[in-house]
Design a protein around this nucleic acid. Sequence first.
DNA 1: ATTGACGTTTACGTTAACGTCAATATCTAC
DNA 2: GTAGATATTGACGTTAACGTAAACGTCAAT
Lengths: 119, 119
Amino acid sequence: MTTRTIRFYEEKGLVHPLRQGQKRLFTPADRVRIKLILRGKRIGMTLQDSVALIDMYEPQRNNSRQLHSLIGTVEARRATLLQQRSDIDDMLAGLDEVKGLCEQALGKRRHRVSGIKRK
Amino acid sequence: MTTRTIRFYEEKGLVHPLRQGQKRLFTPADRVRIKLILRGKRIGMTLQDSVALIDMYEPQRNNSRQLHSLIGTVEARRATLLQQRSDIDDMLAGLDEVKGLCEQALGKRRHRVSGIKRK
DNA sequence: ATTGACGTTTACGTTAACGTCAATATCTAC
DNA sequence: GTAGATATTGACGTTAACGTAAACGTCAAT
């Protein structure tokens, strides 16, 4: 995080740090918000997506329609997260495979050499 | 995927479809490559990252230094994937929590109504 | 031989998420 | 009280990953 990033986030309304003159003061809540945004970024979410996700926690006044709508949003996000996790698991399996091939190649090489030595 | 996307990928050297005149012909291998790229995109990888990941599978001639280097790359990618999966699990837990709160709010409402009726 | 339906190239446009730079203000240490 | 380190505000620049528009080729069907 650079200061520029912080300013950019404030400019976009993602955080609202207090002001002491021209300086920004960040409450622990601000820091948590930022960390949640970064977490979202790590899995490819946009800043807006992260904010939308974070805002689900906020105790906005809830009528029944809004609650059902929110549940729908939750389910949708849940589905993409599950897809992403599945993608990740596939990649991890692939990486293990590659690593195995590498080690096997290295192992064979060592074995070939030791074979020569043994003779 | 739009045709524009395909052309863009070819322009960037991500795929190399055969040509029949001016038309592009995609082999099954091309399609797999593209699907792997899309999988990478789903978890926020750049196109270059995806290509780098895909290329790990290719049987490039392997000297010992390159193999060790590749293992290092694999380990690094593995670490970020694990981080991402952990992030996703955290978010899923958060979503369950939100959903629980929603259902609870809706349940309470229903209960309140039925309570009135029962009286 | 014309009409869609589709594909192509070229080239400029767009959005997200910052980077970079210049000019100015604040604070801290010496 | 002055230098140096750090923060701030515009304002323009940058990169990735395409979108969009214009102008043209191709091929089957009418």
